[in-house]
Amino acid sequence: MRYYHTSDTLYIRGKFRAACTGINGGIADVSTILNHTVPMDFSHENPLEYVESLLSKKGYGKDAFGLLTAVSMQHLCILQYDYITVFVTAGVSNPNPDPEKPHTINIIVTSGEGFSDAALLETIITATEAKAHALKNLGRTFTGTTSDAVAAASEGPLVHTYAGTFTEPGKRIYAAVLKGVTEALLRHEGAVKRPYPSFFIYSRHNNTGWFEWRRDACPYYPCHFEGQACAFCYCPFYPCMDETLGEWVPSTSSETGRVWACSECLLLHDEKHAEYLRKHPDASFDEIRGL
């Protein structure tokens, strides 16, 4: 999986088996999932045509799912919990059952370990339950908005048949969505101010739990060397499986019993490589290595 965002769109790219309740939704093999910010007064007779125009501008195919929101991508929250990554934008000015106002809670869940179709569908249920829990914790008397959407996607060989809250992936999904909806709403409503999307990782180091990584306030800087580039602290090529840069190590955090360890890799901490990837977000791993 690769993802990047512009000022108004989150693009998630990969070879996914996915389920989605949004535009062009259903269960399908897709290469792109996007979440796009539209104006508050947005109105389009054919939302699918609109999403396809966004894809076309990037040179992407129509094998895609689309989500639309009036929430700024500045307030996007990205959460990583082992092999699960969750993307959330959230606004609740149109709580159920009031359809007259804009804003939406959009949730995208991706897994680096393969899900069955049943697990993808169950992911939507798990994410929706966590969303309702987050709203309750924030003192809201509703469980969602009139236009909420969820997408669930996975890559790789089948590992997980189910994704309910009792399963290992379900536990991670629930925790990430619970945290993500909470933090996304705090940002959208101005209680927490960030100039760019927020990134959280679930850390087991010293029982840290959820940790917000910030480029301007990282307690671990410099983790490699003074002056290192940090825009891609969490590598979009992970796991690259290039054994000159990392190795598989035993781990209890994955159902497969191992994780890719690459803490010594400096590839994207080099400013030349990082800047190239910023300008060319679809660049391949081999392209970056060859610079």
Rank of each mutant, 00 (worst) to 15 (best):
M1A: 12
M1C: 08
Y3E: 03
Y3A: 00
T6A: 05
L10C: 08
L10T: 06
I12F: 01
I12M: 11
R13K: 11
F16M: 06
G22K: 00
I23T: 10
G25T: 04
I27Q: 06
V30N: 03
T32F: 06
I33W: 05
F42G: 09
E49V: 04
V51F: 05
K57W: 00
K62I: 11
F65G: 04
F65H: 04
A70Q: 15
Q74W: 02
I78K: 12
T85L: 11
A90W: 02
V92L: 10
N94F: 01
T104W: 01
D117T: 14
A127Y: 00
T128W: 01
G139W: 04
T141N: 12
F142D: 04
F142G: 03
F142Q: 02
F142L: 10
T145D: 02
T146G: 07
A152C: 09
A153F: 04
H160I: 06
T165V: 14
F166E: 12
P169N: 03
G170F: 05
I173S: 04
L178E: 12
G180A: 12
E183Q: 15
E183P: 00
H188R: 04
F200S: 02
R204E: 15
H205W: 07
N206E: 14
W210Y: 13
W210M: 05
C218R: 05
H224T: 06
Y238E: 11
M241Q: 14
T244I: 01
S253N: 14
S254T: 15
E255L: 14
G257A: 10
A261N: 12
C262D: 15
L266E: 13
L267D: 03
D270Y: 01
A274M: 09
E275I: 09
E275G: 01
R278T: 07
P281Q: 09
D282P: 01
S284L: 10
L291G: 10
